[in-house]
């Protein structure tokens, strides 16, 4: 296995523990926005899509690469807007009748 892959594996292990730690104490209230927010973060797939299409050579590769870019971009914008809309409901200025 190439050295790069080992490096990536070490990084992935650290990232996995980070993800676990970050989520471990989260109130039920935030499960939905958090799912939506992490859905947005894997929108980083768009970067990979752009790279894949950017280095595609044959028409078939370009076609599939374009599909990847379209889907990745939808993941990013849709994921962001949905999360913001869900979280907008937690805006304290909109709360009436109390709150901390």
């Amino acid at each position: 296995m190439a050295a790069d892959l080992w490096t990536a594996l070490f990084i992935a292990i650290l990232a996995a523990f980070t993800g676990y730690e970050v989520i471990s104490r989260v109130p039920v209230l935030l499960h939905t926005p958090l799912m939506s927010g992490s859905n947005f973060i894997h929108g980083i797939v768009l970067v990979g899509s752009i790279v894949a299409l950017g280095f595609a050579t044959t028409p078939l590769e370009k076609g599939i690469g374009l599909v990847a870019v379209v889907m990745g971009a939808m993941n990013v914008t849709g994921g962001y807007v949905v999360t913001v809309r869900i979280l907008a409901m937690f805006d304290r200025s909109k709360r009436r009748g109390g709150g901390s």
Binding site: T7, A12, A15, A16, T18, N39, I44
Partner: peptide, 13 residues
């Protein structure tokens, strides 16, 4: 690497 980290982060979380 950015994809490895962000992807794994979401995978674990």
């Amino acid at each position: 690497y950015a994809m490895v980290i962000a992807g794994t982060l979401v995978g674990a979380a």
